[in-house]
Design a protein around this nucleic acid. Structure first.
Lengths: 194, 194
DNA sequence: ATCCGCATGTAACCCGTTACATGATTCT
DNA sequence: AGAATCATGTAACGGGTTACATGCGGAT
C-alpha cells in the first residue's frame, strides 16, 4: 500500500487535493494562475504523480467535481482517510534547520495549508520553529561573512543571501504579530482533519 | 562533439573550472565549504557531469594540479578553448524576465564568475538587466497582491515573496552603486577569456 | 464540418540520488 | 599493520521534461 515516503511534489498535490477536491487539470490551472506557481508542472509529472497517490490509497477519483456535478471524463480526486492523515503528518513535520534555506518554499506551502487544518497556536508554533531555523542559518552566514572582508563578487553575492534571509526573518516576525492580533479562525477544519 | 546544450549544473562546473583548474574532489570540497553550497552535489552527479564536459571537448584532464605538482590519480580539469568560449557565452546569456525568480541563484553564480571575465561596464549592464527583470517580476506580484485584499495565509505567503524580491532589488541597487564607486578591476581576465 | 480548448495520458530520454565499490595515500 | 581520508567511479532506481497521442465537447 505505502511504497515509501512521498516526494515534496506529491505532498503538495495531496495537500491541494485536501484543500478542495480537484482534477489534474484544475491543479494545472491553479499552478498557472497563482504567481507562486513559478513552477509549472508538466502533464508528464502531474498525472503520474496523482496516479501514484491513488495507487498508495491516499486519494480516490470520483466522477463528480466539487459542486457535485457529474464530470464524465474528468478524474476529480479527493483525499481518503489515509490521505488526510498523511497530509496532517506532513504539515506537522518539524522544520529542519540545516535545510531551511533550501526548503523555504515548501515551508511557505505548508504554512498556507495550515490555515484550515491547524489551530492558531499550532501555526504560531510552526512559525516560531521557522524563525529559529532562519535565525540560525542567517547568523551562520554572518559568521562566514565576517571572514570575507574584501569587496569581491563572492562577498557581494554573500550579501545577497544575507539580505533575502533577513527579509524572510522579518516576514516571519511580522506574520507572527499579525496572527497574534487576529482572532482565532472560526471554521475549524471543515474538510481537512487528522 | 556537442551533444546539445549544457545543463545549469554543467555550466556552473565549467565556470568553476575556468576560474581555476580543479579536480572533482576539489569542487566537492568547494561546494561543502561555501555557505552558498546549500546544494551538495553527490558523486553520482559530479563525476559523470565532468566526464560529459570532457566528452564534449569543453574541459581536458591533466595529471597536474593548479600548482603544477603531479597528481597521479587525480583528474585535474582545465578548460579548453571551446570550453572558455562556451563559458563566456553562458555569462553573456541575457536575463530572462519570465524566469528571473526561479533562476536568481544561477544569476548570482554568473555574477560571481563575471568578476575576472567582464569589464566593469559589462557587469553593470548585467546588473541593470537583472534589476529590470526583478522590478518587472515584483510589480507583477504587487498587481496580483492588490487583488487579494484579505488577511488569509495565501495573502501572507504572497507578502513573503514580495519581501524577498524587494530585498533582492535593493541588493542590486546597492551593488550597482558599490561597483560604480569602485575602481576598475586591475587584473583583466588572466585565466578566462573569450 | 471543423477548429479550438478541455482533459488525460504515454514513451523516450536524461539526470540526480542513494548506496556501494575500489584503490591510493597519510596518519598513528 | 590498520584506520581514516583522499579520489574516482558505477549500478539501480525514481522521477521530471519534452513531445506526442487521444478523445470529448462546444463554438463558428
Amino acid at each position: 500500500m505505502a511504497g515509501y515516503q512521498l516526494t515534496s511534489f506529491e505532498h503538495v498535490l495531496l495537500g491541494l487535493v485536501c484543500l478542495s477536491p480537484s482534477s489534474g487539470y484544475d491543479l494545472k490551472r491553479m499552478f498557472a494562475a497563482t504567481p507562486m506557481g513559478v513552477y509549472q508542472p508538466s502533464s508528464g509529472a502531474l498525472y503520474p504523480a496523482l496516479r501514484r497517490l491513488e495507487a498508495r490509497g491516499l486519494v480516490r477519483a470520483t466522477g463528480l467535481d466539487a459542486a457535485g456535478e457529474s464530470a464524465r471524463h474528468r478524474r476529480v480526486y479527493e483525499p481518503t482517510q489515509a490521505g488526510q492523515t498523511a497530509h496532517m503528518t506532513w504539515l506537522r513535520t518539524p522544520v529542519e534547520p540545516s535545510t531551511v534555506s533550501r526548503d523555504l518554499g515548501l515551508h511557505l506551502m505548508r504554512f498556507v495549508m495550515m490555515e484550515h487544518a491547524f489551530s492558531r497556536e499550532a501555526v504560531l508554533g510552526f512559525l516560531d520553529d521557522l524563525k529559529d531555523a532562519l535565525a540560525a542559518f542567517t547568523s551562520g552566514l554572518e559568521r562566514y561573512a565576517a571572514t570575507q572582508l574584501d569587496e569581491s563578487h563572492p562577498r557581494l553575492a554573500l550579501e545577497h543571501g544575507l539580505a533575502v534571509h533577513r527579509a524572510s526573518l522579518q516576514w516571519v516576525d511580522h506574520t507572527i504579530a499579525t496572527l497574534r492580533a487576529a482572532p482565532e479562525h472560526r471554521d475549524k477544519s471543515p474538510k481537512v482533519c487528522g
